[in-house]
């Protein structure tokens, strides 16, 4: 599904602030895998997600998504394949637009946007059903501007927008980090539900080791731009918080 071959990225090349954010990263993800990504600050977690999403071009290597070499495509051209949820709840939705308008924008991900109506009647029914899954009562507030909602509600909508067109790959960049523990748990639960229901290949960054262990079926740990630990299957299921802490202290 997703192949990262010898991917490298250096920021501020040739200056005193030069930082090798990704060094020869290799990662092969099979269809349906749900990978959690952990690592300290500056380990390269967000960098690897941004490299895949196409926020900027990489310096070296290749990124192949579902057989397509996307390395040379800008972010908006990769968008048809990729659903994305950011850390900041404000980043994933358009505050000045209604809930249904936001969903309608997501529904046209990767399609030509012409002069047909931005939201159709048939879609509204579909959105009502999808919003009901979130159990936040948003299905009755579809014309509310998203800016009036709480961070948790906005993040739940972003999640729905990300999976609406069943992307080949779902990228979650610490998408619960800005939420209170109860809301974070709810959003994670919804994440699991949506990922399973749509059988989505997923990469999820988290700072919470418990979440990293409990969610997904594969875990990778990053440090200084390299992937230093990779477990899947049964081994991942047996993994404990102590094991991870040990791994962290081994680095230091």
């Amino acid at each position: 599904m997703l192949w990262l071959e010898h991917v490298s990225k250096t920021f501020n090349t040739g200056t005193i602030n030069e930082r090798k954010a990704l060094i020869d990263a290799e990662l092969h993800i099979a269809p349906g895998e749900f990978v959690t990504v952990i690592g300290g600050n500056g380990a390269g977690k967000s960098t690897i997600l941004n490299a895949i999403a196409g926020t900027w071009p990489i310096d070296e290597g290749a990124i192949i998504l579902d057989g397509v070499n996307v390395t040379g495509l800008p972010e908006y051209k990769r968008a048809p394949y990729i659903g994305r949820v950011f850390q900041d709840p404000k980043m994933g939705t358009a505050a000045d637009m209604q809930i249904e308008e936001n969903l309608a924008l997501a529904r046209r991900r990767g399609q030509r946007r012409g002069l047909r109506w931005g939201v159709t009647k048939a879609e509204r029914e579909e959105y009502r059903e999808k919003l009901a899954i979130l159990r936040l009562g948003l299905e009755d507030r579809m014309t509310t501007k998203v800016g009036l909602l709480s961070g948790g509600q906005r993040q739940a909508i972003t999640l729905l927008m990300a999976v609406l067109m069943r992307p080949k790959l779902l990228l979650l960049d610490e998408h619960t980090a800005a939420l209170d523990p109860a809301t974070a748990a709810k959003v994670l639960e919804t994440t699991d539900h949506l990922v399973q229901e749509n059988n989505l290949t997923t990469l999820m960054i988290t700072h919470n080791m418990k979440d990293a262990i409990e969610h997904g079926n594969r875990l990778i740990m990053m440090n200084e731009g390299r992937i230093i630990y990779d477990v899947a299957g049964e081994e991942k299921q047996k993994l404990t918080r102590e094991d991870l802490l040990q791994k962290f202290s081994d680095i230091l």
Partner: peptide, 8 residues
Amino acid sequence: EMSLALGI
């Protein structure tokens, strides 16, 4: 940012 991520 969102618009880019939605393929606009």
